[in-house]
Design a protein around this nucleic acid. Structure first.
Lengths: 202, 202
DNA sequence: CGCGAAGATAAGCGTCCGCTTAGTATGTAA
DNA sequence: TTACATACTAAGCGGACGCTTATCTTCGCG
């Protein structure tokens, strides 16, 4: 969670991924050259191809890792901590906290991911879309459970869930680590706002 | 409001702008070539330079127009319609409705705008940032007025305003015109959600 | 008709791109 | 020692890029 790339075996590959995230965030996929990425990673232009078969695969590694890690964070944020099964309100608060904090903590990688999603080839896009639907589905399920049980007051289940997830994801677009808020503070604020949006009853 | 480019004098320039929005949304600034943009506009590769001095100026025209139009929409959405001065709740609802509907209606142009903002040269970025601050400031001012008057229940004024604006802007990332919601429906839902986030009292 | 301005084009310049190739250094293990 | 694999580099190929130039067409207007 602390370092997105700690699971990557090769040190050079990790440096390439970190360099790629910074350059893709600054210039976009088409604007960041493989030469520049390799140079920032301290390698010759050709060395990237030892670790990634194409520039597109380097991007996909970033996008896939971001989605895997974000989904795991939401699952962890929504796991029952107190009793046998937490209330829908507690579950949603925990998941929204985790999703917003993730997009603060990993804002550059998440921003690259959102910006370049549309350029994925169909097969890869299908995989990623499945992971996105799964993550949003975790939250939608709790929203539906809370609405069915009368703990929430929600007229538009899918629209409200979508808005909550969208709000969390968009943190990556404006969040700046030198700004006034820590990722945990953003998570706490957004958990509160999501509860408000759902009309959580006292 | 219906057509973003109706204020552009030349028909060929309008076609170039429309082609550019579609291609930049699909491939990003670095991935969409001037040849491709010109071809989609029904012109030769060199004809773009009759209407725009550089590819970067073409992009800036899009980004600037989107910001001008969005700001005007928020101003119109927040103008008093009933009495002498509307309540903060009515103002915020009207402005959020307008901002969310705008980002649904012009989702492609707005998405290009958000994605490529980081690539603007400093002088242009300063201009655009001023317009963004102004638009967010319109909403923040009403949030502060409502909180001061006791009509809202808001602990974090800037954080909550930022979240509301962010949520509206992010509509451009996921909205699809063939989807189940019209821009007006998105606006209505988001106005309701913003009121909830602000703890509007009955 | 005569003429200049505006809009558009075909051709192409120099540069940078993703990626390949051929070859080098290093480590491991039979 | 030989053999092989991995990580890396210098050099460069073919092509696409943004943009320019020289040229042509069109058209309003005296």
């Amino acid at each position: 969670m602390e370092d997105l790339w700690e699971g990557v075996e090769s040190e050079a590959a990790r440096r390439l991924l970190r360099a790629a995230v910074e350059l893709l965030a600054a210039r976009g996929y088409g604007g960041a050259s493989t030469r520049e990425i390799a140079e920032r990673a301290g390698l010759s232009p050709a060395a990237m191809y030892v670790h990634f078969p194409t520039k597109a695969e380097l991007l996909y590694t970033i996008i896939h890792t971001v989605h895997v890690t974000a989904h795991a964070a939401v699952v962890a944020g929504g796991s029952a901590r107190g009793g046998v099964r937490d209330s829908p309100a507690a579950m949603v608060r925990g998941m929204v906290y985790a999703l917003a904090a993730f997009h603060s903590r990993h804002q550059l990688a998440a921003r690259v991911t959102q910006n370049e999603l549309a350029a994925l080839p169909p097969a890869q896009w299908a995989t990623i879309r499945g992971m996105r639907d799964a993550t949003e589905g975790l939250i939608l399920a709790e929203v539906a459970r809370g609405a069915a049980g009368g703990e929430f007051d929600v007229a538009d289940l899918t629209g409200t869930s979508r808005a909550i997830v969208s709000m969390c994801v968009d943190v990556a677009r404006w969040y700046h680590p030198e700004g006034p808020r820590t990722p945990d503070e953003v998570g706490a604020l957004y958990a509160h706002l999501a509860a408000r949006m759902l009309g959580v009853k006292p």
